[in-house]
Design a binder for these strands. Structure first.
Lengths: 211, 211
DNA sequence: GGACGGATTGAACGCTCATTCAAGAACGAG
DNA sequence: CTCGTTCTTGAATGAGCGTTCAATCCGTCC
């Protein structure tokens, strides 16, 4: 055993990691196979030995995002944050950090790909949708954990999607204007939204039967 | 006089119109010059007689969006709608209609281009930013017209940007899932947001001095 | 009618890209 | 060592792209 990875599996991993970074930085269409090869120090044949074509690299990348959301995104963002509502904003803060770290060129990798690949084939589109759904689902779980701090009639699934909507829209504007302020103001508005919801729930606590 | 357009101006107009549709439907990079030529029934030389290169076609398209927002977007959307808050939702309804009309493949043309053109040159980026700013500015004017129906401390500029954020994020999710529901639920959440703001303002009308 | 310049034609060019493949290296099993 | 399989090499291929340009057309004014 030891490092019991077949050479092909290692090659595959290196390609996926390089492609993740490149697709994120340059987009799918603007990333050439040659880009991936030069970054991984591989030759065309090795890549095509592992993947049938470029699109299959994309699929592997989207699967990696799907399978790594817990470990690579949520866990680090929620380190030391226990309050479920604050976890939502901690996740958004992590995106803010990424925007700053990349001089406002950051875009959510999934969001960028989703808009770039208009006529994507069904496999790709499903993977994009699953990634979105998992993200919104993570928020939904936070909202569920918030219990009756939210109004009882709150659609937690829809509110989770709304958080994703605000994140994607904010990232998009921040990047276009090259100014985090646009992201910040979106998050502020979302905070106001939550404050108003929490205040409403506090005002009329649990609508008991016969309220 | 009569149809006093020089041939070049006519050619230019046809190219811009065709490019508008193609960039919207296929994106900038995926639209070839040949696509534009076949749709306009022109030859390469005619296009390059009017435009130095492909990027200049993009610039002309973005200028057309910028100059036509009032006539082509706001005026039709606001036909017969006078209430400033309802105008906001009338505009969103128009986007919903476009989503449906295109079987959920619609993406806001500006938003799509903004995400596709990561490393756009400054001229292009500025035009994208101006288009966003004008859109948000139109909403801001609605909010200003709403006067004290909104809480006095409401940042109307930021709220205008927030509406744009929700629109773009909603369009993106609706398209990825091929389901308008995602857009609708975002608009619903925004409606809730406005309802809560309006209710708050109604509860404490104008915070008079010494409140 | 003649001449001039704006406008058009469409083949050709050079480049990048995804993909292929024959040849060979590496490695484990017997 | 030897066979067989897996994996790698890297040049070649062919399609598609944005762009160029010499030749040609055509409307206008003298």
């Amino acid at each position: 055993m030891g490092k019991g990875v077949s050479p092909a599996a290692d090659t595959r991993g290196r390609i996926v990691m390089a492609a993740m970074e490149l697709f994120w930085a340059k987009g799918f269409n603007s990333t050439s196979i040659a880009d991936i090869l030069s970054r991984t120090q591989l030759n065309a044949g090795s890549l095509y030995h592992v993947f049938p074509g470029k699109q299959d690299v994309l699929i592997a990348v989207l699967e990696a995002y799907r399978d790594g959301i817990e470990e690579n995104l949520l866990k680090p963002a929620w380190e030391g944050v226990d309050d479920p509502i604050e976890r939502i904003f901690a996740l958004l803060a992590r995106y803010r950090w990424m925007i700053l770290e990349t001089d406002c060129t950051y875009g959510c990798p999934i969001g960028s790909l989703a808009l770039e690949l208009h006529e994507a084939d069904p496999v790709v589109r499903d993977l994009l949708a699953v990634n979105f759904a998992n993200w919104a689902g993570a928020i939904e779980q936070c909202l569920a954990a918030a219990g009756d701090r939210l109004p009882a009639d709150t659609d937690r699934r829809a509110l989770g999607e709304f958080v994703l909507t605000v994140m994607e829209g904010g990232v998009m504007q921040a990047r276009t204007h090259r100014d985090v302020g646009y992201f910040d103001r979106g998050v502020d508005a979302l905070r106001t939204h939550f404050d108003m919801l929490l205040a409403r729930a506090a005002r009329r606590p649990e609508p008991v039967q016969g309220d």
